[in-house]
Design a protein around this nucleic acid. Sequence first.
DNA 1: TATTATAATGGACACTGTGTTGGATTGCAA
DNA 2: TTGCAATCCAACACAGTGTCCATTATAATA
Lengths: 190, 190
Amino acid sequence: MNPSKTDRRVRYTKKLLSDALVSLLQHQHISSISVKELCELADINRSTFYTHYRDPADLLSQIEAEVYENMRRHVEKQVLKEGALPVSQQMLTSILEYAKENVELFKALLSENCDFAFQKDILELSEIISSRNNFEVDTKVKAYLRTFSIAGCVSLFQEWLKDGAVESPESIAGMTLRFMQKGVAGFLYD
Amino acid sequence: MNPSKTDRRVRYTKKLLSDALVSLLQHQHISSISVKELCELADINRSTFYTHYRDPADLLSQIEAEVYENMRRHVEKQVLKEGALPVSQQMLTSILEYAKENVELFKALLSENCDFAFQKDILELSEIISSRNNFEVDTKVKAYLRTFSIAGCVSLFQEWLKDGAVESPESIAGMTLRFMQKGVAGFLYD
DNA sequence: TATTATAATGGACACTGTGTTGGATTGCAA
DNA sequence: TTGCAATCCAACACAGTGTCCATTATAATA
């Protein structure tokens, strides 16, 4: 299908490099990862790396784009099912299930070791989802609220993943929505 | 007072290097900042840098420690004044005023270009402040709530600073507390 | 002010990672 | 089987690193 991936060798090489990068990102920031160590871990020749990517950040952005695309499809499917405008329990659960199936990957992409492009994508995605939520208010305050909520969400997910994603996606989704909608209040009286 | 700072030359050198680092941190991640470019910007000899710091991250952690100490004192003074346990409007306002007086510095320390040590310090500080808030509940949920709230806070502050800190510290403090306490609800009906 | 201690400078060193090249080798696809 | 593209491998000049040491400049203080 994808012309750049017809050759099995290419696919294999890219997979090895991606896996190696995700693995390194568990402990190091993207800008401190050298091409050399990445290639050694992936057991790929350094020259080969350069035939596919400009540098590790380039590889990262391609991984991000791919995962984002998967998430967008996930969300779209969910929207079709429910026609949901505000973020629903089901929507969030579905996303978290996908994350749980790819723990290491999501841990890496959401962590401080990445360039936050992924988090910015999520912010964008959330704007698309709730864009029709147009109660007319000061847009600046609205922007602050969105920033507050999404950052809170993402950090909560991070912690969940870091601790091994033991709780069910459902319960995390429910908790997150309560925090978003009611803050501390939603925590106390429930 | 501080024996390591008796010599004026040392103080001056350290100041130049700190300023240069904060300036570079506006646009680059700490782990991508080279000693060379840092010294060129500060107009300090590279050898001199090494007599004071191990690497740029070392310098950063010293800056962080100093700012954190200032913040801790700030908070303590406020606690004495009010004996406040939950974070109060005054407490937050006071912190934000301090941040506004040092915009570039706080932008750098809170940004994605730092190692998050500072944000972790803030999390710790918040735990100290609200430690006596011991309504007995599932501590895991409580931990998630704290993560959610602090991350939201920090991101909101980041955005405020990035846009030039035009709003008053009071209004930002008020908004933040409403978000924390009531979430979206606190935004809608007010 | 003159003296002394020490901080900063500037140049040199070996070392490591970078990005590129050209040629040899491997293995996919048709 | 053959042709072609992907991978490997060795070598290259170049950048930044961290550590010297001799020299210069300047702060502290007698």
